[in-house]
Amino acid sequence: MNAPLFQAKDYKSELKPIWCPGCGDFGVLQGLYRALSAIGRPPHEVAFISGIGCSSRIPGYTTAYGFNTVHGRSLPIAQGVKLANPELLVVIAGGDGDGFSIGGGHVAHAVRRNIDLTYLVMDNQVYGLTKGQLSPTSPKGLETVTSPLGSLEDPINPLLYMLAYGAGFVAQATPADMPGMSALIEEAIRYPGFSFVNIQSPCVTFGEDEQQLKAHKGKMKTLASLGHDSTNQLAAMDLARAYGKELYTGVFYKNPNPPPTYESLVKLRQAEQSKKARARHQILEAYLQK
């Protein structure tokens, strides 16, 4: 067997996570190290983009190039990174609030452009960093500091949302199943196009007991064990409806025939147009009025 070029520990930075002891994000980070090592790209060829939130601190804990941006904007920023340098491996991570509330408007467009990006949402159904307010994935009725009498609204279903927008790769994982989670992250990264993994990553400080890893261990079910065919988009949508009730892990949908990525089309266009380039000092001659 070949020794891997990079081991999980090569992706671990010296910065110590500030997360609360027991936070689900520690496991996610560990899974990510493993997935990156399995992929084997050197850390300096990885760009890791996030928004703001506890979860969004994650790029700093890796040895990759990181960009811990502003709340909700990781998706457009990551698209700029990837289009500027398609050779990079670009991973995005953030929270449920970052991704589906303030950044929600960007999701459809990231999906439809089909740029080869991997988006990991660390879904804890709460706003961790701002201390426990309602999030767009909080279950209806949840009592939080901003919903002391219980929330009146239904949560977003991130899985259905992504499937409906047409994402080519949609999966769900939990750090309660570390090997499963890191394999899913790896598979998502390998998928040539926009890929999404919803990671149920509990908040120990503000989360409910039934959302913790111990509860996950009791109730998680792999989609494979249900006999799900991950090339069947409709079946995937049907199963995704159970978000918030069941904890299904695995690949909901993976497009068996991935369409060309946006950046590959960009490359073709650049190649075709480059013949028409003018020398720098002749650019203005295009405006001469003959």
Partner: peptide, 25 residues
């Protein structure tokens, strides 16, 4: 003799889970 197995092949065999700890435990 070269090592044939890797850390990535195992998980949490003897290591406590991340969710076992709490502030002020």
């Amino acid at each position: 003799a070269p090592v044939g197995v890797r850390r990535e092949m195992i998980f949490d065999v003897e290591a406590p889970g991340y969710d076992e700890v709490r502030m002020n435990m």
